[in-house]
C-alpha cells in the first residue's frame, strides 16, 4: 500500500468521504483537548464509542490520549461488553473511570423504577451528572450521531449544558465553519459529539477498513431470546420473563448496545463486518427503531431525556 492509499485519498488531492469525516472528527477531538481543562470520553464498549476512542488515539499519536475514559455502568450491561471494555482500555493504556448507577441507588441519589419492567436508562443521567460534578469535567465526549434520531439531528457538535446539565434545544449556539465555541462558566460543561456527521453505515465501513474489534454480540450468535413489543430481548439476570413469553434459541445479533433490559436483538446470520455492511445497507429500519425500547416511550423520548442531561 503506498502512502496515498493509506491516507484514503482518491487522487487529485481529494479525500474519500470516510477519510474526510475522520479528519473532521480528529480536528474536533484535538480542539477539545487544547481548549478545555478536564475533558472525558464516554465509553460504553458500543461500536460508536469504539470508533470514537480509536479516533482519539489517532488524534494524539504517538502521544497517549490526554484525558480519561468513563463508563456509566447501569449494572444491567451485557457481560460480554464489560469484558471487552476492560480489555480495550487496558490495551491502549487509557485511564478508566466507572460511574455506577447501582452506587447512585445505594446512596439514595436515585430510586429504582417501579413497575413490571424497571429500566435504569433514565437513572443513568443522575449518575452521569454526579460524575461530571465530582470530577469537574468541563467537556464530555459522546458518540451520538445525527442520523440516529431526530432530536440528535438538531444538536450541535459542541452542545452547551447549563449548571443542571440541561440541554436547551431552542436556544443553541450557532455553529459555523469548524470554529467551535467551548466557552462556558463554572459548573457548566460542553457535550462534544465528534461523530455527528457519521452514519451507521460509515461506522461499519470504518470498523471494516480499520480492522477494529467490537464486542462479540454485534455479530451473529445463538442466544435465548423472547419477543416483547416486537423486539427480541435476551434472557438474562436482569430481565423478567413473563409467563406467556416464550424463550426461543435463535441466531441473532445486536445493532446497538445498551442495557440488557431495553436493547433488542435482530435475527441475523451476519457474522462478519462485510455481512453487516450489506445488511445495514439493505435495512429498512433505523437502528434505534429496530432495537431500542427507551426511544419508544413517546415521539420526543430522546429530546426529553436529553433536556435532563442524558447522553
Amino acid at each position: 500500500m503506498d502512502s496515498s492509499e493509506r491516507a484514503g485519498t482518491t487522487g487529485q488531492y481529494q479525500l474519500s468521504q470516510l477519510r474526510n469525516i475522520e479528519a473532521q472528527s480528529i480536528h474536533i477531538i484535538r480542539e477539545v483537548a487544547a481548549e478545555f481543562e478536564r475533558p472525558v470520553l464516554l465509553f460504553s464498549g458500543g461500536k460508536d464509542s469504539v470508533v470514537m476512542l480509536h479516533l482519539a488515539r489517532k488524534a494524539f499519536w504517538p502521544g497517549r490520549i490526554p484525558f480519561p475514559v468513563m463508563h456509566i455502568d447501569t449494572g444491567h450491561n451485557f457481560p460480554e461488553v464489560l469484558n471487552f471494555r476492560d480489555r480495550i482500555v487496558a490495551e491502549i493504556e487509557a485511564t478508566l473511570k466507572v460511574a455506577s448507577v447501582q452506587e447512585s441507588i445505594d446512596t439514595g441519589r436515585v430510586a429504582e423504577e417501579t413497575g413490571a419492567d424497571p429500566s435504569r436508562n433514565r437513572l443513568q443521567t443522575r449518575t452521569l451528572l454526579d460524575a461530571i460534578t465530582e470530577f469537574k469535567f468541563d467537556a464530555v465526549f459522546g458518540g451520538a450521531r445525527r442520523d440516529e434520531e431526530k432530536a440528535r439531528a438538531k444538536e450541535r457538535v459542541y452542545s452547551f449544558r447549563d449548571e443542571f446539565g440541561q440541554w436547551d434545544p431552542k436556544n443553541q449556539r450557532p455553529e459555523l465553519w469548524s470554529l467551535y465555541n467551548g466557552r462556558h462558566g463554572a459548573g457548566e460543561h460542553i457535550r462534544v459529539f465528534p461523530l455527528s456527521d457519521w452514519t451507521e453505515l460509515d461506522i461499519w465501513q470504518y470498523v471494516g477498513e480499520e480492522g477494529l474489534e467490537l464486542p462479540s454480540i454485534y455479530y451473529a450468535h445463538r442466544r435465548n431470546v423472547f419477543r416483547r413489543d416486537g423486539m427480541l430481548l435476551s434472557e438474562g439476570p436482569h430481565v423478567n420473563v413473563r409467563d406467556h413469553e416464550e424463550i426461543m434459541e435463535m441466531t441473532v445479533r445486536y445493532r446497538t448496545v445498551g442495557d440488557m433490559t431495553c436493547t433488542g436483538a435482530v435475527e441475523s446470520p451476519a457474522s462478519t463486518v462485510d455481512d453487516i455492511i450489506l445488511e445495514v445497507a439493505a435495512s429498512r429500519l433505523t437502528e434505534r427503531g429496530a432495537t431500542r425500547a427507551d426511544d419508544r416511550v413517546s415521539e420526543a423520548a430522546m429530546e426529553d431525556r436529553k433536556r435532563e442531561g442524558y447522553f
Binding site: D147, K150, A151, A153, P169, S196, T199, E299, A300
Partner: peptide, 22 residues
Amino acid sequence: TDGLRAEREQGITIDVAYRYFA
C-alpha cells in the same frame, strides 16, 4: 426533519437539521 417537540407542536422548523443520504 422537524425533530423537536416544539417544532412538531407548532408546525414550524426552528433550527438547522442535518440529514444524510448516499
